[in-house]
Design a protein around this nucleic acid. Structure first.
Lengths: 107, 107
DNA sequence: TTGACAGGATACCATTTGGTATCCATAAAG
DNA sequence: CTTTATGGATACCAAATGGTATCCTGTCAA
């Protein structure tokens, strides 16, 4: 059970959440990611490190570039923590619930 | 669609997450909550304000005390954001998914 | 009415955080 | 071999963050 703290911390910054959304579509290297933000590469790289520490991305060298990939398993820590609030989900207010129900229909 | 930033920010601190877990069981006032932490009441109150700004608790005066209540609807912002990652849930790795499926069986 | 208790307000402090600038290493490409 | 683009390393800065101490207000109970 990985401690959720680094993950929650990683998600707390809007730039980092945007980076995650970016990486949904495809893996990207530092230069590509930085091009999407009004910020130096050094700053973006700091964000990437925090995202990696939170288990939300992986960073692997490929050739001479360093490729960042979204790691869906990193969200497990968040899900596990949210599970503590099971008792409050009776009213099915969460949009996530409906999303998963839809996914089931498609199965 | 309330911006998720204040909610994610509120969840980023371990003390605040613990406060939320505390408030699952019952509403509590400032003194009761503070008794659970090695921290001044002033510090705890700051956390409560941030939790309220994130929509995760409500604070209502009752008699001479100020009662804090967990507000499950506040997690909606988090769920909505997590929905962006629908495409990565095919493997149903999330414990939350199974929890909600169980809830459906009970319906 | 006098405490005592719950909490608000303010000022202050150390550390973390998000960011910059600068310089350095390395790997391809020509 | 030299150039050029990717990214690592370090130092630094301003602002936000998490915390304290102190003092003030109001309400309830004796």
């Amino acid at each position: 059970m990985t401690a959720p703290q680094p993950t929650f911390r990683a998600l707390a910054d809007p730039t980092r959440r945007e980076i995650l959304l970016l990486l949904r579509s495809r893996p990207m290297n530092l230069v590509e990611i930085s091009a999407q933000f009004d910020m130096t590469r050094a700053a973006v790289k700091k964000h990437l490190i925090i995202l990696r520490d939170g288990g939300l991305i992986t960073m692997t060298p490929e050739g001479r570039t360093l490729v960042s990939r979204f790691n869906p398993a990193g969200l497990r820590a968040v899900f596990s923590w949210l599970e503590f609030f099971d008792a409050f989900w009776d009213d099915r207010l969460s949009a996530l619930a409906t999303a998963i129900e839809k996914d089931q229909d498609n199965a």
